[in-house]
Simulated scan of single mutants.
Amino acid sequence: MDFSCELANGIVLRPVHLSDAAPLAAAFQANRAYLAPWEPVRPEEFYTVQGQHDVLTRRLKDLDDGTALPMVLVADKAVVGLLTLSSIVRGAFQNAHVGYWTAQDAQGGGLMTSALAAAMIIAKAQLGLHRLEAATLLHNTASQRVLEKNGFEEYGTARAYLRIAGQWQDHRMYQRIL
């Protein structure tokens, strides 16, 4: 299946490739301080080409196993974001978790709102999923707006849900029935 699609301004949302290791390392290095409050503490190796190659190798195995769909947002061969459908569960659930980030210099133009809308179509039409869920830090209003613009509804708060920026932090939980 082809999970690629073109968004506005020539930006492409597509599954990751091993060849994305260098562009992803560059994107993570350029956005390291910007992403730090929203992400787990990462080892130094994560920010290298080899570190990203290792991450991509695991993500591609998840893709092959049908448990995840990791995708990059690419503009002129540069990675400007990442959107992953992970923890795909089949059977009676047909559910996936959505996680994403956008480069600091690509913020504010609706890019992730469009990318999530495209990912929802892929999730329903190509993956046959019934439900998507997402979690945001309580103070991450930008991410909450992306979800709400795409019809996600808040359904609760998970206490000490994820270890972000070195601390266990509460998250607002969202879902979207497809």
Score class of each variant (00 low, 15 high):
Leu82Tyr: 13
Leu82Val: 15
Leu83Val: 03
Thr84Glu: 06
Thr84Ser: 09
Ser86Trp: 01
Ser87Pro: 00
Ile88Ser: 04
Val89Thr: 15
Gly91Val: 05
Ala92Trp: 09
Ala92Gly: 15
Ala92Gln: 14
Ala92Lys: 13
Phe93Tyr: 13
Phe93Lys: 09
Gln94Phe: 11
Asn95Asp: 10
Asn95Gln: 13
Asn95Lys: 09
Asn95Met: 11
His97Met: 12
Val98Leu: 05
Val98Ser: 03
Gly99Leu: 02
Tyr100Met: 00
Tyr100Asn: 02
Thr102Tyr: 09
Ala103Glu: 04
Asp105Leu: 13
Asp105Arg: 15
Ala106Ile: 12
Ala106Gly: 11
Gln107Thr: 09
Gln107Asn: 10
Gly108Tyr: 01
Gly108His: 03
Gly109Leu: 13
Gly110Leu: 13
Gly110Phe: 01
Leu111Cys: 07
Leu111Ile: 08
Met112Phe: 12
Thr113Pro: 13
Ala115Cys: 04
Ala115Arg: 00
Leu116Val: 01
Ala118Phe: 03
Ala118Glu: 08
Ala119Phe: 00
Ala119Asn: 05
Ala119Ser: 13
Ile122Trp: 00
Ala123Phe: 03
Ala123Met: 04
Ala123Thr: 10
Ala123Pro: 07
Leu127Asp: 07
Leu129Gln: 05
Arg131Asn: 14
Arg131Phe: 03
Leu132Asn: 01
Leu132Gly: 08
Ala134Ile: 05
Ala135Gly: 09
Ala135Lys: 04
Thr136Asp: 07
Leu137Ser: 00
Leu137Tyr: 06
Leu138Gly: 02
Leu138Ala: 02
Leu138Ser: 01
His139Thr: 15
Asn140Lys: 10
Gln144Val: 00
Arg145Glu: 14
Val146Thr: 09
Leu147Tyr: 07
Leu147Pro: 11
Glu148Cys: 07
Glu148Ile: 15
Glu148Gly: 10
Gly151Asn: 11
Gly151Arg: 10
Gly151Pro: 06
Phe152Lys: 02
Phe152Glu: 02
Glu154Gln: 14
Tyr155His: 13
